[in-house]
Design a protein around this nucleic acid. Structure first.
Lengths: 338, 338
DNA sequence: TGTAAAAATGCAATCGATTGCAAGATAAAA
DNA sequence: TTTTATCTTGCAATCGATTGCATTTTTACA
C-alpha cells in the first residue's frame, strides 16, 4: 500500500538504517542485534521485498542456478523428446526448486562453439546435471573431466573424473537377453546404436549369448526414436532380412517402433519374435502387447542426481552411484505363461 | 595461451582502449570506428571472451531469460510428469535456446507465497510461458491479468488479458463424443476433472450428446494420472457401478489407466466399452488396443507459444492462437471396421 | 564517574558491463 | 594556417547487494 520497496536501500531507508545493516539483517548476520534483525526481516516480509538476484550473484560470484543439460550428439539425437529423460528432468527440476535453486534448461550440441564450462567461468550455474553421454565418448570426456560440480546420468568409468549416477547397464542387457534365451530364442539381435551407455547394455547382452553358446548377430543401427526403429525394421522385413526370433532393444521407443513394423507385417509377438525394451517407461504396461522392459527408476535416479550435486556443492566427498536394475517381464517376451 | 580474458576491462586493456570502447565495439555501436570495432571483436573471439550475464543484466535491467512455468494446483497435480506437456516443454526449450534465450524451468504451486510477478519485478525473466491453467481458474486469472509478456498454453477466454495458445477444446470434446455416438454408444461418460481447459472439452462432449438426444451422465472425477484412473475405474467395476458403453477421457493417461482396469475385469474394448483419449501422445499408436485420441500438435503448439512471446517482447501486437484439432480414430473406439 | 572492552552500525569499495556527457583527434572549410 | 564541424574515444556514474574496516554506541568493570 505504501511505497514500493524494490531495493535493499529502499528497505534500509524505511527502517532507518544503512544498506549494510539491512543486508546483514536479512542474512541473519550476528553482527546485527537480534532486535534489529527481526525488525528488518519483518519489514521485508510485510513489503514483500525480494532480493535482486542479478546483483547478488554479481557481487558474490555465484548464480544459485543449476543447469540441466541435454547433450545432443547430432540433430538426429532426439533425447529432448525421449519421455524417459524428460520425466527425469521434470522430477529433478521440482526437487531443485525445493532446494531453492533456479533450474536452467540447456540443450547442448556436441561440437557447438560455446563450451559448457562457460557456465562456470561466467557464473551462470553453480553446478551441472548432464544427460546424454552421447555417442561420441571422447568428445564428451574431454568436455567434463576436471571441471566443477557436475553429475552425469549414465555409465561410470574409471576414465571419468566426473560423478555419475546410473543403472547397471551391463546387468540390464544381460538380464534382458538371458530372459529371451530362457524363452527359447535362438537368434537374438541387439537393436540400437551403441553409445557409451547402450554399449554397456550390448556388452551384457553379448555375455548372456556367449553363456548360452549362441552366436552374436550384427546389431541393428537404429537411432533412439520409434520412427527410425519402425522404418529400419520394415525395410528389413520387406527384404527378408529379419531372421531373428528375439530382440533386445536399447530403449522402449525402439522396441515400440519395431513392434509396430512387425505387427504390420503379420509377425506375431512373442511367438515368432520375442522382444524386450529398456527404460520401462510408464506406457510399457499399456502397449500391445505389454512390453517387457529393463526398469530404471526415474524417481530414485533423479533424487540421487540432485543429492550428489548438492553434496558436491557442499564440498562433501561424493561417490558415483550405480542403481540396481531389474527386468520386468510382460507379454512381449513371455512365450509360455504357466 | 596468453592471459585469461575474463572481463571487459581485461579485453580493453589488451586492445589498448577503454572499457567503454570495448563495450561499444562488442555491441557493434557505430560510434566506434569500423576498424576498431572489428579489431576488438576479433580479439574477443580469439580469447574466447564471453560477456558476464549477471553484470549485463543488472545494468540493463533485463534477464535474457524466459521462464517456463508449470503451474500445479496441488501436490496431486502431476502435470510435471505428463508426457504431453513435457514434450512440449522440451521443444520450447530448444526453440528458445536457438533464439539466444536462457530457459528457466519453474514449478509453481497455486497458493505458494512467492508470486510469479516477482520474475518480472526482479528482472529474473523477460517473459513467461505458462502451462496449466489449473483447476482454480480464478486464482489463476488473478495471477496473470495485466502482467507483462506472458503466453499461456490453454483455452482463451474474454476474461483473460493474457495471450493464449491452445487447441479448440470444445471441438475436440465434441468430435470425440460424436464419434462414439456414431459407433453406437448409448451411455457415454466424460472422465476426468473439469479444469478450465478440460471443462471446455466437457462442453463439447455435452453438445454432441444433446445433439443425439442422449443423456449426460455425471462425469467421473479423476486426476490426470493413469494411476488414479485405474483405481477409480477398478473401484467402479467392482461395485458394479460402471454402466457406460463409451468413454471420453480428458487425457490419454486417464484413458490408459481406465483401459487397464477394464481389461483386468474382462471388459472388451471397443465392443463393450469404446474409449477415446485426448492429446494423442506418441504411444497411442502402440497401446493395446491402439487408442483413439484427439490430436494436439505439440510442435505447432510449441512454435506458436514461442513466436507469440517473442512478438510480445518486440512490442508487436499479438493475438491469441487457437489451433485446429482433429480426431484420430484407432482400435479403442472403432467397432466395425469396414 | 571514568575507562576499557564489546557490540552495533555505517562508509565506501567492489562485482562487471553500459552509457550520457565531455574531451580529444581528425577532416573540411575558410 | 586558423576555425569549425565531424568522428572517436574516455571519464565517471550507475545497476543492487555485500563486506572489510572504521566509527559510534552500549555495556561492564573499577
Amino acid at each position: 500500500m505504501v511505497t514500493k520497496v524494490r531495493t535493499l536501500s529502499d528497505l534500509a531507508k524505511l527502517a532507518g538504517v544503512s544498506g549494510s545493516t539491512a543486508s546483514r539483517a536479512l542474512n541473519d548476520n550476528k553482527l546485527i542485534s537480534a532486535k534489529t534483525r527481526e525488525r528488518i526481516q519483518k519489514l521485508a516480509a510485510q513489503h514483500n521485498f525480494k532480493i535482486n538476484t542479478a546483483a547478488r550473484n554479481l557481487r558474490l560470484k555465484t548464480s544459485n542456478t543449476i543447469a540441466v543439460v541435454m547433450v545432443k550428439s547430432s540433430e538426429l539425437d532426439q533425447s529432448i523428446t525421449d519421455s524417459f529423460l524428460l520425466n527425469m528432468v521434470g522430477i529433478i527440476a521440482e526437487e531443485l526448486s525445493r532446494h531453492g535453486f533456479d533450474v536452467l534448461l540447456v540443450t547442448h550440441f556436441i561440437g557447438q562453439t560455446t563450451s559448457l564450462d562457460e557456465y562456470f567461468t561466467m557464473n551462470r550455474a553453480d553446478g551441472l546435471i548432464v544427460f546424454g553421454q552421447g555417442d561420441d565418448i571422447t568428445a564428451f570426456n574431454q568436455l567434463f573431466n576436471h571441471l566443477n560440480p557436475i553429475v552425469v546420468w549414465g555409465e561410470q568409468s574409471p576414465q571419468n573424473d566426473y560423478v555419475t549416477v546410473g543403472t547397471d547397464n551391463v546387468k540390464g542387457g544381460y538380464l534382458a537377453c538371458q530372459h529371451l534365451v530362457q524363452q527359447g530364442c535362438q537368434n537374438i539381435v541387439f537393436s540400437g546404436v551403441r553409445s557409451f551407455e547402450t554399449g554397456k547394455r550390448f556388452e551384457g547382452y553379448q555375455k548372456a549369448l556367449k553363456q548360452a553358446n549362441l552366436k552374436v548377430p550384427l546389431p541393428l543401427d537404429i537411432h533412439f526414436t520409434s520412427e527410425d526403429a519402425y522404418k529400419v525394421t520394415l525395410e528389413l522385413l520387406k527384404t527378408k532380412q529379419f531372421p531373428y526370433d528375439g530382440v533386445v532393444a536399447a530403449s522402449d521407443n525402439i522396441a515400440l517402433g519395431m513392434i509396430r513394423a512387425l505387427h504390420e507385417q503379420g509377425v506375431s509377438i512373442p511367438e515368432q519374435v520375442a522382444i524386450v525394451g529398456y527404460d520401462d517407461i510408464e506406457v510399457c504396461a499399456f502397449t500391445k502387447p505389454a512390453l517387457s522392459s529393463v526398469h530404471q527408476d526415474i524417481h530414485q535416479g533423479g533424487k540421487h542426481l540432485v543429492n550428489c550435486l548438492l553434496d558436491l556443492l557442499a564440498k562433501k566427498p561424493v561417490e558415483s552411484v550405480q542403481l540396481d536394475t531389474q527386468l520386468i517381464t510382460r507379454d512381449s517376451s513371455v512365450r509360455n505363461p504357466k
